[in-house]
Simulated assay, not measured.
Amino acid sequence: MQRFKFTILAICLLLLYLAWGDLEIMLRNPEPKTVSIEELYMDGYPREWLEIQGGYLNLEKAISTSGTIDLDALVVPLMMQPRDDSTIYFLVETRNEELLHHFAQYHFRSHTQEQKDRYLEENRDAFHPQYDIEGLVGTGRVAISNRQKILNIAREGTLDVDEDVVYISEGNTPPRIRGLFFLVVGLLGLVRVTIMWRAPRQAARTSSSS
Rank of each mutant, 00 (worst) to 15 (best):
M80K: 06
L78M: 08
L78F: 03
A104F: 10
M80H: 00
D85V: 02
K116V: 06
S110E: 09
F127M: 13
R109Y: 15
H107K: 06
N96K: 11
Q105K: 05
R83K: 14
L91P: 02
D84N: 07
E98G: 09
E121G: 08
H111Y: 15
P77V: 06
E93H: 01
D117T: 13
H101P: 00
L78V: 02
A73H: 07
A62M: 06
L91Q: 02
E122T: 10
H107E: 15
T94H: 06
F108W: 11
R95G: 12
T87G: 00
M79K: 10
K61S: 13
T87K: 00
Y89P: 00
F108A: 08
R118M: 14
Q115K: 11
T94N: 11
R83M: 14
Q81R: 12
H102M: 10
H102G: 04
D117S: 13
R83A: 13
L74M: 10
E97F: 01
F108Q: 05
R124H: 13
E121P: 04
S66D: 11
R95C: 01
T87R: 00
A62W: 04
A126S: 14
K116H: 03
L91D: 08
L74S: 07
A62G: 12
D117M: 15
D72V: 14
V92W: 03
S86Q: 06
A73N: 07
V75E: 04
V75W: 02
P77A: 09
F108H: 09
H101Y: 14
L91A: 03
V75Y: 02
E93I: 12
V76M: 05
D70Y: 11
L78P: 00
R83L: 10
Y89E: 10
V75K: 01
V75H: 02
Y89S: 09
K61P: 03
N96G: 08
D84V: 05
H111I: 14
A73K: 12
T94D: 11
H101E: 11
T94R: 04
D84M: 03
K61L: 12
S86Y: 04
T68V: 09
A126P: 08
T94W: 09
E122R: 03
H102A: 11
F90H: 04
H101A: 12
L74W: 09
T68Q: 06
L78A: 01
R118K: 11
F127P: 07
K61M: 10
Q115V: 06
M80P: 00
A126K: 14
H101W: 12
T112P: 07
Q113H: 13
E97V: 09
I63L: 12
L100R: 08
D85P: 02
L120V: 08
T68R: 03
A104W: 02
F127W: 13
Q113M: 15
G67H: 05
R118P: 12
Q113K: 03
D85M: 06
K116Y: 03
F127K: 05
D125Y: 05
Q113D: 15
Q115N: 12
L100H: 02
Y119Q: 10
